[in-house]
């Protein structure tokens, strides 16, 4: 049984929060989860299916943001190339579908494996460096994947490729049904959040976090931090590949635009906006950021004029993100 109250807790006060009564921050998380869980029912009652489509997208990108936060928030590895895994996961599904293989039992594992292998290669190179090098190199490799996708003439090149059929599983799980697909995404998001939460609170997670604050010291104690970080990097890549699989199924379309480098930037924004210190923060960030984007783009064509300075404001004045604000209030 999952103890929901703990999910929002960052690793330092995880134990403290478990013994404390629910505060504003946990109430917020529970309310958000309840809304997400009940949303398709609301849509079915009001007939507003746009909401389900919008929130499916939000859930999928939230999953990607959670996976990014595993390496960025807990491991201190700022990857500016995370959208590449969205693209890789998506392209594996799209390419297989184009070649006539629609079974999800083939598509999904293969997509995760390819994402993991790419993460392994990139990670092995990037983790030799630190700081700003790491940011630029992850960005550059993601850009490489982007250009390779543009070069794939058979699979649509620049224009992308329409996927005729969503991944086929057993009859009971029909992904073409919007509500079913929404709940599949929701369940996977919860599973990933739970997995990441277990991971960061495990011995493995503590080593990763130790390496973030002082890599040399961790090595001196005797931890081969490179291997730990590489494994962490690969896990994040696989999880984000899953998000790409879902995204391709959601839009029934793949194109290089899925992994445009600004998408990697968006993922970082979601993680930071929600709060990097907690596992659940990026979900809050994804909901906030994508809803904001949606609202702004319905009001004005030039949403960047408002969004851009707002980001700068978050960086300068609200570094802890929404989670940080809630935490401050909880402490009263």
């Amino acid at each position: 049984m999952i103890d929901w109250r703990n999910l929002s807790a960052d690793w330092l006060d995880a134990r403290k929060l478990a013994s404390n009564p629910p505060n504003l921050r946990n109430a917020f998380v529970i309310a958000l989860l309840a809304i997400l869980a009940l949303l398709p029912i609301y849509s079915a009652l009001t007939g507003n299916y746009f909401l389900v489509t919008l929130f499916t997208r939000i859930l999928i990108l939230a999953l990607a943001a959670v996976s990014l936060n595993l390496i960025m928030g807990f491991g201190g590895m700022v990857s500016f190339g995370h959208a590449a895994y969205l693209g890789i996961g998506g392209y594996v599904v799209g390419i297989l579908a184009k070649e006539g293989i629609n079974s999800g039992f083939v598509q999904w594992p293969l997509a995760l494996i390819v994402s993991g292998l790419f993460a392994l290669g990139v990670g092995a190179l990037c983790l030799r460096t630190r700081g700003v090098y790491f940011i630029m190199i992850t960005l550059a490799f993601a850009q490489m994947v982007y250009y390779v996708a543009i070069g794939l003439d058979r699979y649509g090149g620049d224009d992308g490729l329409t996927i005729n059929k969503r991944s086929q599983f057993i009859d009971a799980v029909n992904l073409s049904n919007k509500t079913v697909f929404y709940y599949v995404c929701f369940a996977l998001l919860l599973a990933v959040v739970y997995l990441v939460w277990r991971l960061v609170n495990s011995r493995f997670g503590l080593v990763i976090q130790g390496a973030r604050s002082n890599d040399r010291r961790m090595r001196a104690i005797g931890f081969p931090t490179f291997r730990y970080k590489l494994v962490c990097f690969v896990i994040a890549g696989v999880l984000c590949g899953l998000s790409g699989v879902l995204l391709a199924n959601h839009t029934s379309f793949i194109s290089p635009a899925m992994m445009q480098w600004t998408r990697s930037g968006d993922l970082i924004v979601m993680a930071v906006l929600g709060g990097m210190g907690s596992v659940f923060g990026p979900v809050v960030g994804a909901v906030a950021f994508l809803l904001l984007e949606e609202v702004l783009s319905s009001v004005t064509e030039y949403s960047g004029i408002i969004l851009g300075p707002m980001l700068l404001g978050v960086v300068l004045f609200a570094r802890g993100g929404i989670d940080g604000i809630l935490k401050d209030h909880s402490r009263g």
Binding site: T262, G265, G308, P309, L311, L312, V315, L316
Partner: peptide
């Protein structure tokens, strides 16, 4: 990265 991404 975040701040200058916003500027972009």
């Amino acid at each position: 990265v975040l701040g200058t991404f916003g500027l972009l």
